[in-house]
Design a protein around this nucleic acid. Sequence first.
DNA 1: ATGTGC
Length: 482
Amino acid sequence: MKIGKHHLSKIEDYLWEIPKSFHKNMLVPARVLAHEPILDDIIGDRSLVQLVNVASLPGIQGASWVMPDVHEGYGFPIGGVAATSHPDGAISPGGIGYDINCGVRLLTSTIMLEEVKDKIEALSKEMYAQIPSGMGKGGFLHLTHKEMEDVLSLGAKWAIDKGYGNIKDLAFIENNGHLPDADPSKVSERAKSRGLDQLGTIGSGNHFVEVDYVDEIYEPEVAEAFGLKKGQLVVLIHTGSRGLGHQIATDHIKIMMTAMEKYGIRVPDRELTCVPFSSLEGQNYYKAMCAAANYAWANRQVITWEARKAWANIFGKDHGQLKLMYDVAHNMAKLETHNVDGKPHALIVHRKGATRAFGPGFSELPESYNLLGQPVIIPGSMGTSSYILIGTSKSHDLTFGSCCHGAGRRLSRTASKKQVNAPQLKEQLKERGIYVQAGSFKGIAEEAPIAYKDVNLVVETVSDAGIAKKVAKLRPVAVVKG
DNA sequence: ATGTGC
């Protein structure tokens, strides 16, 4: 199957549809949120074919969606949202991603860039020294088996109980950094052992810890509630559940590949492997997925502690702790209720490279954000802008309360490596006042700005679609990568 | 994304 622009019918400037009639397997239409220039980036890879494949997922409701940062992934596109009927619709690991609960958190500081410009290079080195990074790398923690069980059950709270953070941090994490449905007994010994030494580490690929300054404010009242001021330094942390989550995905994908048949499920691509959520295999995966999510939140919490330590080492303790603004997951399935055909419907919302973007009035949000909406954090590529947005009520009507998660790749890792001279890029960024500390030039080449879509256009799309509003724009000054 | 592949 090949899908071109002519298969897409334009509904709005920012919304395109492939109707259900396009293919007999489709149970719902396929929808693309993107301003026209972005479509050219999207059509080059398999993401639209994958989007159409997802429309055949058993129990899928409403539409198969992709956000403007879409690109191809394992089975499902990255940047996709698929909501299936709870409890008998499908749960599919490919709709969540190998890096379960990959996500981003933002910390705000009390320091203005202008005050400390001459200390940024030292800060970047100190961050790199304090925060372990790189493929397969471990950190300073070496969990016992009992501690692993507790991390998987308790999430971010485990880290805070151990002294890696403040109890007040918890309110500013999606789900308070804890999914109670986690069951460590559904996580293989192999997955657990891969996770023992990796808590508090960022890994490689697009994962990073970055220092940014607030470059622009679009919504002053919201920015104030979020603790954002023009010129202020903030810290962005992007990572997930490391080898543990990857192993959980691998284990359960393998189980589902054989289990699928007994439930009479056929999918157009074996990578869409899935089982009914209510089945034994579905429940086992879901409980293991929740455990991986808890591990990822504990991971971002320990990294926060490391970042705070580096901060204090450079700026002194009188600058206080970096404050957690919010932590959002962008690789996860969540049990949520949304309207389908005008009626509330219990759903399993798969978000893969898509961020929850709830509007105002959700009791789970921190009290100070409750009347406003949920913060949405959109990291750009290395050396470009990142954005802080806020979710809206319209996201519930349109995309099951979801938004994009980043700029989105436009070149494969290999294509990017061919085009980019990494040492030169590192120097160019330094000349622009962006200090990159990376474990490998390969990582820099794969993550070069040219490998990504224009984040401004991506954000413009979701903002014009009305599923999130721009609050602030950030620009990087220091980047730590694997 | 990932001790880059069964």
